[in-house]
Write a protein that binds this DNA or RNA. Sequence first.
DNA 1: ACCTGAACACCGTTCAAGT
DNA 2: ACCTGAACACCGTTCAAGT
Lengths: 258, 258
Amino acid sequence: MGRMPTPSPRPGRPGRPPRLSRAEIVTTARRIVDEEGVAKLTMRRLAREMDSTPMALYHHVRDKEELLLLLLEDFAAHAARPRLPDDPRERLLAAATAMRDLLTQCPWLVEVLTADDLLAPSALWYVEQVVDAAVDCGLTPEQAVRAYRSIWYYTAGELVVRAAAARRRAADARPTYRERVFADLDPAALPRLAALGPRWGELTAEDTYAAGLRALVDGLLPPHRTGAPPTDMDDRHDRQDREDRRDREDRQDREAGE
Amino acid sequence: MGRMPTPSPRPGRPGRPPRLSRAEIVTTARRIVDEEGVAKLTMRRLAREMDSTPMALYHHVRDKEELLLLLLEDFAAHAARPRLPDDPRERLLAAATAMRDLLTQCPWLVEVLTADDLLAPSALWYVEQVVDAAVDCGLTPEQAVRAYRSIWYYTAGELVVRAAAARRRAADARPTYRERVFADLDPAALPRLAALGPRWGELTAEDTYAAGLRALVDGLLPPHRTGAPPTDMDDRHDRQDREDRRDREDRQDREAGE
DNA sequence: ACCTGAACACCGTTCAAGT
DNA sequence: ACCTGAACACCGTTCAAGT
């Protein structure tokens, strides 16, 4: 893991040469988180892992929150950005799904970034794609932002709920609590839930993110032509749109590669 | 606050008479949470507030998580259950909104209950209403559960995000971080977000829960007649449904009152 | 049966000092 | 400029003992 070299002490610089660097701190933090979960990532543990002291860390990051933000940055910067489809509605769905897939790999981050948005600069790429696709679907920029927010709520909720469920599964503290509750339901007071009974568990285990997202997007966007074969007009528009978009993406790729 | 009497020592019972009770623990816990936020609710603080010791609490609740679950129970049990509209779609919206309004009063609970569902028995009333309304809208029970899950993700996400934003506002640690990020955006890489610039802040402050919920529900339910005047057939069905439902609610009211 | 005291194994962060 | 040590003010929970 120690392949990241300690920054060489630049000869012209005064003072004691640094032993720690932000980059090493982030790498080590990420290893701890990947191997043992966010709960184990503490300033003290991180310092111990780096043969240093808690206070040395505070010379490189303001506080623990900044450390977590750096972790998100690192994650988003290294994630592969999928090539998105041309059709704006499909593009919107693909961008949201890509965002969700990225965060599924690091559900511990959700607590950090629920703040408002994916506020790490690199992560804003996903936001941009969703908003842009929504505008291409016919929404005004303002409507597109509102649509993005709904999608973000839905996505953040799915992540938080699934992360909590996974945590619970790992800890398997009273693994039958839900079953117990659902077994004791009063069919007179809660007929639907009582009738579902044990099936609730299976249904809750299903991955319904994609279906729910499609429903949400259907409701958010103006009605779209389904199944209707494209006319010449449509075709012409689509081709122009595609070219515009490809230009934009090429530009982005070049910038992302620097 | 000490209006809840210490349980009188039942004469027949052996052993030392209890000084603490679950009820008093919950009342005190809720006062702390209401006045100073969940972060301040610790076993030690709670014990101090009750002129007791941390360990005395462990005789009445298994651990801190059980304490938080008791708090949710308490909250849901005392919340007024709104009379829901008759039209199933409106009923679904109203039930989800009522659930959200309840939780908005105690956003600190969201972290606890994201587990899977509102797993406190009293809170399941809201789940029942949403699932039942979804079935009345024409979904199968399975589809209704999936629809509920999407709505719960959306609702939980909204709560988590807004709670985090509020926390941040209260702490107002670097209040301009988002503004700084949005000011530094590269318009070539993120044209939509850069163009929105400062408007992002205002748009994010809007309460768009209701609009997003309607969109989601539109997408989840089979298409519904909008604006079309009801036929005689519809009318007859609706009247029957209304009667069924009123029966059911009356039964619930009686049971809730016990 | 119910409560207490002391202890264990932790936290994030500040402050004053060292090299 | 960068790092250290000791300290502050906390956590949740366990264990053994007291009434």
